[in-house]
Every structure is written in structure tokens, then in C-alpha cells.
Design a protein around this nucleic acid. Structure first.
Lengths: 157, 157
DNA sequence: TATTGTTATACTCTATAACTATA
DNA sequence: TATAGTTATAGAGTATAACAATA
């Protein structure tokens, strides 16, 4: 029986302390507002999914990267990279050209439109970070990033 | 032309430093080994997905929780909770009974088999944590958990 | 009218297998 | 024989809309 000043819209909410010691649970929880912030600040305005954003930025900093390299960097399987690049190519953001040194491989480069979009997206991502991380001090942000990297590397490769 | 001591299996790998300052990217990266560890230690042995595991543990600590409450705790939409509970009910792990105080609502409880599975799963999850977090000191683990909670709460509710 | 839960449906993401072309 | 990339397909996860029962 909630008092008048209670704001619980629902059956009050249940105890989640039994899961809070699990890193996977905390990561999944933190992922929700993070993805929402991305969608608001970058995804919706520029019509980009998270992986499309990452691919564009990676290509801006790594011109001529191969789909194989993107596959590893984005932790995606090869066929998924193909359809990702199909979408970006259809939007006129990238080009795929056969490599001269290895005729099996492709070299992916940004078009001028792709370069411009990558620049805008990168700028907006910095705004986004400020919002997501506003509750954290600069030192806390650095520690959080570093600890997540440690986890990723530990069981990672 | 890689030297004999080079271990790079692939086209050497591209520069990802352009993304490393983004929390969303680091979360996605850390999520990969974390989910793999869950699948190895808990998911495959007990035939449980991550949300099935979370639901079982939540119900073990919150007997009689409603699907609505689970929906909020698990950040899932109502129809997804229905199919999740369908699966658990078909496996004889839970029971759904109408609430006496509100005939619209259901009260979900674990069966003895569900209770036993939740116990096993919780125990295995502790082993899993040790592996995922082995690269971190106890203090670092506590800080990481706390910072992720801050992020989740900040933009969260 | 609003809320709880279900059904039906569609959409996205991702994974696998089979194929080609080069090496 | 192995590798880079593509195609086709199937599976899991998730979201929306329409509905029934109850408040």
C-alpha cells in the first residue's frame, strides 16, 4: 500500500541484489542507457546503427582496410560484414576495389560523402559521451575505460 | 611480409584507437568474453540463456513476482516475458498462478526443479566470475561494478 | 478508461553452409 | 590446399499492434 508521496508506477519493483555482483549483468544494464544515448545523439540524426558508425570511423582512420580486417575489429562474422558494406555502398558512403597485391582481397575506402558523414558522426559521439558520462568524474571515466579494456583483453583474444 | 616470429594470422589488424574513448564501444568489447564465459560455465551446461538465468535467479530471490515486475527488472517488453515464461514453464521450472488480490496479475513461483536449477546456476556463475575477472584485483572488481552501476543509474531510470 | 497479460506478426541481427575466385 | 569474399538461408532476439480479462 504505497503512500501518496510514492511515485512507483508499478508493483513496486523487485530485489535485484542477487544479480548485482555479476559483471555480465552490470554490463547489460549499463549497455541500455549507452545505446539509447547513441541512438538519440548519433544513430537517429545520421541514420546509422552502432556497427555502421564504428565501421565508418574505423575506415576514416584506416583507409583501404579489408573486409577481413573489419571483421576482426568489429567482432563480426564475414557474411555480416558483406551486408554491412553493401548498405554503406548503396548509400554512397564507401567504395570497394580489388587489391593489386592480392586479387582476392578488397580495399575499402570512404567516398567524400562517407568521409563527411564520419566526421559528423565522430563529432556527435563526443557530445553523446558527455551526456552518458556526466555522472562520472574525468578520473572515473578513465578508470572505467581502462578496467573494461582489461576485461576485454583478459579472456578476449 | 611478416617476420617468422610474427604471430599475426591475418592482414595485421587495423588501428582501433579512434573508437577506444567511447564507452559504448568498450562495453560492447567487454561484453564478448563475458558472454562467452557465461555460455561456457553456465549457459551450455544448464541449457540456459542469459535472460533465462537472470529470471530464474530473480524468482529464487523474489517468489511470487509478477511478469510486469520481471519485465522491468530484465528490461524486456511484456510479450518477450510471456514467451520467456512459456519456455521455463514447459521445462517444469516455474508455475504461473492468478493473484488473489488482483485477478489480472499472475504470480510466478519456482517449482522444486526450478529452485534446484537456480541454485546450481548461481553456484556456477560464481566460478564464471572468477575466470572473467581474474585479470582484476578485488578492489578493481568493486570499482568496475560500482562505475557501471553509476552509468546505468545516470541516464537509466 | 486504464492495466495485466497474451497472441500474432514483423523486423533486425547473427550464425552456418555452400559457392567463386584467387593464391 | 587454403584464403577472401559472396550468397542464401535459418535461427534467435526483440519490437509493435491487436486482443481478452479485470480493475
Amino acid at each position: 500500500m504505497p503512500s501518496p508521496k510514492d511515485k512507483d508506477k508499478a508493483p513496486a519493483g523487485i530485489d535485484q541484489s542477487c544479480l548485482q555482483h555479476l559483471l555480465g549483468y552490470q554490463i547489460a544494464r549499463a549497455d541500455i542507457p549507452t545505446r539509447r544515448a547513441f541512438a538519440e545523439h548519433v544513430g537517429r540524426p545520421l541514420a546509422l546503427s552502432a556497427v555502421e558508425f564504428s565501421a565508418l570511423v574505423l575506415l576514416a582512420f584506416n583507409p583501404g582496410a579489408t573486409p577481413k580486417q573489419l571483421s576482426e575489429a568489429l567482432a563480426m562474422v564475414a557474411p555480416a560484414v558483406t551486408v554491412l558494406l553493401d548498405r554503406l555502398e548503396n548509400r554512397g558512403l564507401i567504395e570497394r576495389n580489388r587489391s593489386d597485391s592480392d586479387r582476392r582481397a578488397l580495399r575499402v575506402t570512404l567516398t567524400p560523402a562517407g568521409t563527411e558523414l564520419a566526421r559528423k558522426a565522430h563529432a556527435l559521439s563526443l557530445e553523446m559521451e558527455r551526456e552518458v558520462l556526466q555522472a562520472l568524474s574525468a578520473a572515473e571515466r578513465a578508470i572505467l575505460i581502462e578496467l573494461l579494456q582489461k576485461v576485454a583483453r583478459a579472456a578476449g583474444p
